[in-house]
Design a protein around this nucleic acid. Structure first.
Lengths: 243, 243
DNA sequence: CGCAATCTTGAGAATGCTCAAAAGTGGTGG
DNA sequence: CCACCACTTTTGAGCATTCTCAAGATTGCG
């Protein structure tokens, strides 16, 4: 029963070698995941919270909101992603965590996670690496919004998403689910919905991508990658056929 | 001799209670800081590196650079700031760390820091909190560039800088050093130098700030703060007269 | 004192935004 | 099973913010 597909195990094994006991613990954590509908807050800005959130299915996000309603998505959470390792060190959350699509979410009490990290150094190490990658991703997003044109931003986001989903076995060589709306893509890339729409059309017109319903297919990876100036290094996913 | 001004001690004491031994270790770390000229790289993107960098005087930054030369500053480092706590977990750096003004910089070998963190739990805890705040600041910068107008971005950056420098005793109630050029402010806020210049003039015209040489004075904190929609919470500096 | 970097100004252009409305899509209840 | 409604995507037109290019003024360092 332990050989069930598990994005968390797959992700962490990309960073460290896990033994049977490690995998066991991770399977047990993953097993407590519960269904959460799309567009549901998992933890709200300003609130204290005590659980570490782990996504095992679906896509979630972190975001901050301005008084005028403007929203900035600061991260996408894909299966295998956890949030807020050191959460007990801060009293309140500075941002909101929510689902985008319907998800399965495990909530791990902070003391339980601490115990796991103490007893399983490989897991602890892998989770710390994971947190560093999340931070590097955040920096790359800043570069994306700060230095790239609208077209490049979308292209870069799609490259990143595909690589991350492939790393946990949730994408084929060239396609993956894309559950977010154009409005959410706009909130992610610092653009308006209208301009996201026109940029998507331009990417399609150039034969770089195909969008069918909620599914993204990359038709020309080399050109998309080069347009976005995408270098996957910051994601630390080795062994990607096309990196 | 231990009562010498020490921004690292001052910063960490804002998060946890330190005992004499803790302070002692921090003073010893700080003492090894050496002079580094302005505009000097401390660690380069793509290179492995084994030292934790600590700024004790001056202002530094992290940045990433695109092939076309475009640069995105992803963080400012003020005295008391360290970088890359868990550095040994990743083989190479995803960004460059450099000085902006002339700095004093201590380089702490990773094993030495690990030992300190093991023997001084209060320091370990404070440094972890510090790392979380750095990440929260990164998120706030993403909001800044993604959601705010040119004028608001500069205003927000100035608010943040003043609060951070006050927290380590390096700013008066309303003014601080501002060693970065308008070109560097542009690379920070995702704008062009020309537009930074015009935005600064507008802030001056509105009576919000005063810039003399490399010194920034905030003339109307309430209005500047409200223009930028600045909420200092993410910086976790309590006890600020004007937060 | 002179040179290089920084700051400032001007004018025209482009990227991306606003507002508005139409077309398409999917889910729900009757 | 259909109809309706809300949400999402698409399109158009005009406009604003910000960029580009270029040159002149100022500052500070050697």
């Amino acid at each position: 029963m332990e050989s069930v597909f598990n994005p968390l195990v797959q992700k962490l094994e990309g960073f460290v070698a896990l033994d049977e006991a490690d995998r066991d613990v991770l399977h047990r954590i993953t097993a407590i995941a519960r269904d959460v509908p799309a567009r549901t807050n998992l933890a709200r800005e300003g609130e204290p919270h005590n659980d570490i959130v782990l996504i095992t299915e679906g896509i979630g996000c972190r975001f901050k909101q301005r008084a005028n309603g403007a929203r900035q998505v600061t991260a996408y959470l894909v299966p295998g992603d956890t949030c807020n390792l050191d959460i007990t060190l801060l009293d309140r959350l500075d941002h909101t965590i929510a689902t985008i699509s319907a998800c399965k979410v495990a909530r791990i009490p902070a003391p339980a996670l601490r115990e796991i990290m103490e007893n399983h150094p490989a897991i602890a190490r892998a989770l710390r690496i994971s947190a560093l990658i999340d931070e590097a991703t955040l920096r790359e997003w800043l570069v994306n919004i700060g230095c790239r044109s609208a077209l490049e931003r979308i292209a870069h986001l799609f490259c990143e998403l595909l690589v991350r989903l492939r790393a946990v076995g949730l994408a084929t060589e060239d396609s993956c689910d894309l559950p977010m709306t154009q409005h959410e893509l706009a909130d992610t890339t610092g653009m308006t919905t209208v301009h996201v729409n026109r940029s998507l059309q331009e990417l399609r017109r150039r034969g770089l991508i195909e969008l069918k319903g909620k599914s993204l297919k990359i038709l020309d990876w080399p050109r998309l990658k080069s347009l976005a100036e995408f270098k996957a290094g910051y994601l630390r996913v080795e062994g990607q056929a096309v990196s």
